[in-house]
Design a binder for these strands. Structure first.
Lengths: 68, 68
DNA sequence: TATATTTGTAAAGCGAGCTTTACTTTTCAA
DNA sequence: TTGAAAAGTAAAGCTCGCTTTACAAATATA
């Protein structure tokens, strides 16, 4: 799974700290998500998507072969 | 957060065991999700939604006041 | 170039998501 | 009404998502 968080954030001229505050997590969490260290929880994914005015599937991209 | 898994599954005449196998988790995981013991991971949410031919947001319902 | 801002790394700690195994209760068709 | 299938409970164990704190590197702007 990959995500478009960094891209969407930059398009809107936001720092990681600003996005983190907006969705109520720490800056480390945003860094880890952007750098692919782990996946967001369903709730956090929803908050991020909602913040960008998009659906979860538009922000988080699921590879086809992805099994688990 | 709530979800429509049990409803959608029954509409399709599936047992928990059949759904579990289809999305590659154990029956206990489906039971726990249906009974609200915890939330699905983003990847599992995606697999379930996809299995039902729906989006994540159509299967998993996020309350408005939900903060975390 | 100096300074501030932004991004990144590291590591320990905690709860959530999921598994495994085993057993009990409910539902439903013969 | 019995028996099988489906649904549920319990509990221990493991990994992942997220936090906290602290420090380092990169980027930008004066």
């Amino acid at each position: 799974m990959t995500n478009r968080i960094a891209q969407l954030r930059k398009e809107r001229g936001l720092s990681q700290a600003e996005l983190a505050e907006a969705v109520d997590v720490t800056r480390q969490t945003i860094i880890s998500l952007e750098n692919g260290r782990y996946n967001a929880s369903l709730l956090l994914a929803h908050k991020i998507a909602r913040y960008f005015g998009m659906t979860i599937e538009e922000v988080f991209l699921f590879d086809e072969e992805e099994s688990k």
